[in-house]
C-alpha cells in the first residue's frame, strides 16, 4: 500500500525534479552534468512516482509510450549530426548559433545531441522500470 504522504510528496516533487533534470542537461556542457545524468534524474522522478502511486498512474502521467521517447531521442541525436551534412560539413560537425539565449546559453548541435541522449535515457529507464514493475 503506497503511503499517502509519499504519493502526495512525489506528485509535487515530479515537476520540480523534471525541471532540475533539464537544468542538469543544459549546464552539462560547461559544468559536470549533461544529458545522461539529466535523463537519469528525470526518470528517477518518474520511478519514484511509479513506486508511490502505482505504475498505471505513472504511465498516465507520461504523455507518450516510453518507447517513442527512445525513438524521438535517437531521432534528435541523429538529426543533430545530419544538420552539418546538409550544410556541407562532415557528419556531426558542430554548428552553433551566434546568439546567446538566456538560461540556456549558447545553442548548437552538440546541445541538441545531448538532448537526444537525455530523452533516450528517460525512455530507456522508464521502459525498464515500468515493465519490470508490471511483471511482478
Amino acid at each position: 500500500m503506497p503511503s499517502l504522504i509519499l504519493s502526495t510528496a512525489t506528485r509535487y516533487l515530479l515537476p520540480l525534479m523534471l525541471l532540475f533534470s533539464v537544468f542538469v542537461l543544459i549546464r552539462g556542457h560547461n559544468e559536470p552534468g549533461g544529458g545522461f545524468i539529466g535523463g537519469l534524474v528525470a526518470s528517477t522522478a518518474y520511478a519514484l512516482y511509479a513506486i508511490s502511486s502505482g505504475v498505471e498512474k505513472a504511465r498516465a502521467a507520461l504523455p507518450i509510450e516510453p518507447r517513442y521517447i527512445i525513438a524521438v531521442g535517437l531521432g534528435i541525436a541523429v538529426t543533430s549530426g545530419m544538420i552539418s551534412m546538409i550544410l556541407g560539413d562532415p557528419f556531426m560537425t558542430s554548428q552553433w548559433l551566434d546568439t546567446v539565449f538566456p538560461v540556456i546559453g549558447k545553442v548548437g548541435t552538440p546541445v541538441m545531441f545531448d538532448t537526444g541522449v537525455y530523452l533516450v535515457v528517460i525512455g530507456v529507464t522508464l521502459t525498464i522500470i515500468f515493465n519490470l514493475a508490471e511483471g511482478e
Binding site: 518507447r67 517513442y68 527512445i70 525513438a71 535517437l74 531521432g75 541523429v78 545530419m82 551534412m85 560539413d89 562532415p90 557528419f91
Partner: peptide, 24 residues
Amino acid sequence: MNILLILPILVPFITAILCLFFWG
C-alpha cells in the same frame, strides 16, 4: 569527407528509428 562512409551507419539507423515510430 566521403559521405559513403557514414551512410552505411545512417541508413540502417534511420530505418530502425522509423521502424520504432511505426511500432505496430
